[in-house]
Amino acid sequence: MIEIIQSHDLTPDAAHAAARQVADKLARELGLTCRWQGDVLRFSKSGVDGTLTLAAAEARMQIRLGFLYGAFASTIRAKVAEKMRKVFVPEADTH
């Protein structure tokens, strides 16, 4: 399982917009289906499923990979962590 926790100081609406950017990237690159349930974005497809949970000061991504995707876990972790950092802490890009 991949777990990434990204702190943020975004408003709830901005956090949802940031989460949508992360979900859109995952959907494009891995062909995932995404749906919101309150403050939890659930995504899945054969061999991959997980959640992106929004809280007041953090976003927590949990991804479960099946056997075929397991070999790419470190690459997937790095790409998702980078995207989350960029969208949840936008000023980090300017330094």
Rank of each mutant, 00 (worst) to 15 (best):
I63Y: 04
G38I: 05
T11C: 00
Q62K: 15
L32H: 02
L32M: 06
E29A: 08
S46Q: 13
C34K: 09
K83G: 05
T51G: 01
R28D: 15
C34A: 15
R85W: 00
S7A: 14
R35Y: 05
T33W: 00
S74G: 01
L52D: 05
A18H: 01
H16C: 08
D13W: 04
A78Q: 08
W36C: 11
D24H: 08
G47M: 07
L41V: 07
S44E: 14
S7Y: 06
R28W: 13
A71C: 05
T53A: 15
T11H: 00
A78G: 08
R64C: 05
R77A: 04
E3P: 04
E3Y: 03
I63Q: 03
D24A: 15
A18S: 11
L65V: 06
I76T: 02
G70V: 00
R28A: 15
T33G: 09
L68T: 03
K45H: 00
L32A: 04
G66D: 04
E29T: 06
R20F: 06
S46L: 15
S7G: 10
A71M: 14
I76C: 00
D13P: 03
A18R: 04
L54W: 00
T33N: 09
P12L: 14
H8E: 01
A15N: 03
M84V: 10
R28G: 12
R20P: 03
G38S: 14
T51I: 01
C34T: 12
A23Q: 02
V80S: 07
G31W: 03
H16N: 11
Y69C: 06
L32N: 03
A27Y: 07
A59N: 01
K83S: 14
T51A: 01
T75W: 06
Q37C: 08
A56E: 11
T53Y: 01
Q6V: 06
Q21W: 00
G70H: 01
A23Y: 01
A71V: 07
L52F: 08
A23M: 04
A59H: 04
K45Q: 02
A23P: 04
L52I: 10
